[in-house]
Design a protein around this nucleic acid. Structure first.
Lengths: 196, 196
DNA sequence: CCTACCGATCGGTAGG
DNA sequence: CCTACCGATCGGTAGG
């Protein structure tokens, strides 16, 4: 039951926001009464915390798996692609993250530090190594680059269905994903001799 | 008074969200009573509409001015820089936009179409012209590129104070802005012969 | 622009 | 896991 509540709460918080979702709505969606929900999670804030921790925990595990199996040269774009894939398979995750970044900055920051900093540190170090080997452009700012790629990946998934309205040509999701990876690759790696 | 209400409502909607902001809070912040607010704006939704229209109207005017005075070669990165500058001078604008993209998709889409489509069309055409002249990379997808740059610019400003938590190095705002422009430039334009 | 007031819904508790 | 209930606050109206 706890897991069903978490799944439904994730969905509703992502779609309508924390303040736009009542405990009543969550309880109703899983078929129990509100006070029963409050037996599993002692308050609405406790429910939010559990939702967030569960999601970031999954993300961390996902990224660790990609880092472990990816070849070094492709590691960075692989991680970006994995990130977009992770969020695309359930876009509510990206929306939830964006919402929490706006609604619950301090809470999200603490969790980011705890769950994500280990591997962003790895990636930054990786970029620096690529720079000394001449594979990565010298003018890349490692930390800033990683941050922008996260913004781009999360933002892309969360806002992808807005695309049609913003630009007339209405690129579909594939084109957008392809373009993100192209932007990342081109702005990160030095052109190889054969290219261009 | 109408303008003061709009300014305060923009601020509060951006910071706490539409559902997290009560009419009582808006009225109190400008020193009137709630029913008096409802004399100026007949409902909370009408207030939201007015806030959004005002902001997007300003943005459109801002972009038009930049397009008018910018040189052709730099037009795209100039627009991006102007966009980041516009949002940076009042980050609440970026947060408000992100929130509305999540909370009020259809309403925002309609306004985007109305306010922004004219100039995104211009920019896409501009990219295509750059491609036939060999200045812009052939593999750039114009519409997708523009969309990603908007996501990046808005997302960067709205989420910039999260940077410290995500990556250890804590790049400050200047480094992030510099990195965004570098990413845009590198992934858009073909390298000139002298470069690299 | 105000006071006074409305029904509905909010998060949460008591008690079983 | 439930019924019954709490005070507080919500958006909005009546009437001046």
């Amino acid at each position: 039951m706890r897991e069903r509540l978490l799944a439904v709460a994730t969905e509703l918080f992502a779609e309508r926001g924390f303040h736009g979702t009542s405990l009543q709505a969550v309880a109703e969606a899983v078929g129990i009464r509100k006070p029963s929900l409050l037996y599993h999670f002692p308050s609405k804030d406790a429910l939010r915390d559990a939702v967030l921790d569960t999601m970031l925990g999954h993300w961390r595990a996902d990224i660790a798996a990609v880092l472990a199996r990816s070849r070094v040269r492709d590691q960075l774009t692989d991680v970006l692609a994995a990130m977009v894939a992770y969020f695309s398979e359930a876009p509510q995750r990206a929306r939830l993250l964006l919402r929490e970044a706006l609604d619950n900055r301090v809470g999200l920051e603490a969790r980011f530090r705890q769950h994500l900093e280990p591997w962003t540190g790895l990636l930054a170090e990786h970029i620096r190594r690529g720079q000394t080997h001449g594979v990565v452009r010298e003018d890349v700012h490692p930390e800033a680059f990683i941050l922008q790629m996260i913004v781009l990946g999360v933002g892309f998934v969360a806002l992808s269905d807005l695309g049609d309205a913003v630009v007339a040509g209405a690129p579909h999701a594939d084109a957008n994903l392809h373009e993100i990876l192209r932007i990342a690759r081109t702005s990160l790696y030095r052109p190889r001799p054969a290219e261009d």
